[in-house]
Amino acid sequence: MFKSIVQRFKTKFNAFIDRRMPTTGIHKLSHKNIFIFPTWFGFAFLSFAVLLFVLGTNYQNNLIILVSFFIVGLFTVVMLHSYSNLAGLEIRSNGTLTGFVAEPIDVSIALYNTEKRRSFVFTLKQPVSSKTVIDIVADKAKLSVTLPRRGVFTIERLQLLSEFPLGIFRTWTYLKFPITFIVYPEPKPCKVAQIQHTLIDEEGDTEPNDKRVKGDDFYELAQYQLGEPLSQVAWKQVAKGQAWQVKRYANHVKPNHNVLKLYDMPGNNIENKLSHLCFLVLEYHQAQIPFGLDLAEQIIDSNIGEQHLTTCLEALARWGSDCEARNE
């Protein structure tokens, strides 16, 4: 009951924030987007003034009363200073940022109108909170974001917070920038040699006249068991004097030269497969070997170079998101 009220309030509040401070690349801070509220210390400070007032009144001591009024005055003045610390500040940031899962991605933020000495902190609660302190003299800020999942994300609202000058007031703002994160899968090493071997092996072995095999993709070599059709026995291995093995086939598109197939990857989990694939993509790129990608939904032709690498990694990052979108 209570939770649902909180939830509803949160939704309403977020909607209000979205309306009031729409996403833009340039945010100029003013009374329209600055929030201000006393900290708990601020309230304590104010009650301290009340305490002094009581003390001064009991002693009929005008000077103690004056000090208590001075604290009230300080409270008011600090409110204005606290506000003007952020007001007028211009913050710009936008673009598309890429990185791997669980690796910090740097968001660079440009600050303008910092000539007044200011002190503040940027915080982003997405999904793991990250924090950075802004150097007051510098006009650039760097924010490190670590994302735990593969995919394409827009940035959450960035919180900019300041308790300057006396910690009595907290001024803050929520800013949304047109920033997109493309998070690649975490590269997980796998036995390149094994996969390469099977690939090459399969290519050399599969005869074009073998009707049974045609159209089916070679999947793996397995231990021969009694009763299995002899046509599937890997005679080459037998001839070499190795143990009897059978070729297993899966219903896949036939691979091109050096085309890395998602479903060829080891592992029983699609995320793991993507991680392995990611690793291979990087390896191939490193070794300057042309490669293509077969992601079932999407096929990228064999190519080489930075541009190709980016395309491939982005495809890995986006994999499945269209599917989900279609399901929804």
Partner: peptide, 13 residues
Amino acid sequence: LLLQSMPIAIALF
């Protein structure tokens, strides 16, 4: 800060 809060303090006083 001190000088700016003095007018308020004096007015209250």
